[in-house]
């Protein structure tokens, strides 16, 4: 910001508000993290205390490692999330390009139809989806989850991306056409790099609900070899007894990969190479 426009008082107030919000937002995560390193008694005696020599314990992590195939769950979650995001971005961007670039009969209608999914939660269709998965033999496969999450993510992706695609210079696409590039080359080499920030936004919006989802793994893929992390962690939550050490440890570990993915995408959010393309 310009130095002349910077008022120290405003600056301090702005930072105070932001820091306060950060603390509020991070507090639950912080509580989960510290408690995952404490004994069961210590968790209940003083939930907000930091682990000390007395209360420090890795018992939660041990339980998680021993019980169930935690790494497999982890891997399943990762595959499902990354594959779904990939399909959402590829197909979403392609549909958005077609809607924003080509004039054809029913263009607006198609756009509305594709955006309808934003308003109707996919869970309403759970029974039908389950029937379809049973009929196609996809129950208890990761593909069942990937397909459902792709369908769930597409409407918003198309909606956001087609707005951004409209902003890509028409002259640039036309220049490509005159130079003999195919429509696919124009899409992948000229347009996609320019809407990368928008793609990252869509990725971040889609990633977290997919990673955290419990509903569809529970219904479509509850088998041991296809359990996702969130579903896997449920074994520690019983009707009468809950192994809090294990739950907190599992949750702590589940945060990491999303954080890594988020860092990757947020870099893209900031980076933009639009400058110099036009004007």
């Amino acid at each position: 910001m310009n130095k002349a426009r910077r008022n120290p008082l405003n600056n301090a107030a702005m930072h105070a508000i932001l820091i306060a919000y950060t603390c509020v937002a991070l507090f639950p995560v912080f509580v989960i993290l510290i408690n995952s390193f404490k004994t069961r008694k210590a968790i209940f005696r003083e939930p907000l205390a930091l682990p000390d020599a007395d209360s420090f314990s890795m018992i939660g992590y041990q339980t998680v490692m021993e019980q169930g195939d935690f790494f497999l769950y982890f891997q399943n979650s990762f595959i499902v999330t990354v594959a779904s995001l990939f399909f959402v971005l590829v197909f979403g961007a392609m549909a958005a390009f077609a809607l924003s670039e080509y004039r054809f009969k029913g263009n607006t209608l198609m756009g509305l139809y594709l955006a309808l999914g934003i308003m109707i939660p996919i869970r309403i269709g759970t029974v039908a989806i389950l029937e379809m998965m049973v009929a196609t033999g996809l129950v208890n496969t990761l593909w069942a989850l990937i397909l459902v999450y792709t369908a769930q993510g597409l409407p918003l992706a198309i909606f956001i991306l087609s707005e951004f695609m409209r902003q890509v210079s028409a002259d640039l696409k036309d220049a490509g056409r005159i130079d003999g590039l195919t429509e696919y080359t124009i899409f992948f080499r000229l347009v996609l790099p320019l809407v990368r920030p928008a793609m990252a936004t869509v990725a971040v919006f889609n990633m977290i609900p997919i990673w955290n989802d419990l509903w569809f793994p529970l219904i479509l893929a509850p088998a041991e070899h296809t359990k996702t992390l969130t579903l896997g962690s449920q074994v520690f939550i019983g009707q009468f007894v809950t192994d809090w050490n294990a739950v907190l440890s599992a949750l702590s570990m589940a945060i990491l990969p999303v954080m890594i993915l988020y860092v990757i995408f947020s870099r893209q959010l900031i980076r933009g190479i639009t400058s110099g393309a036009v004007k």
């Binding site: 640039l172 005159i178 080499r189």
Partner: peptide, 12 residues
């Protein structure tokens, strides 16, 4: 060959 108002150079 065409020259555009906004130049339309390939940014990459």
């Amino acid at each position: 060959a065409m020259v555009f108002q906004t130049y339309a150079l390939y940014p990459h």
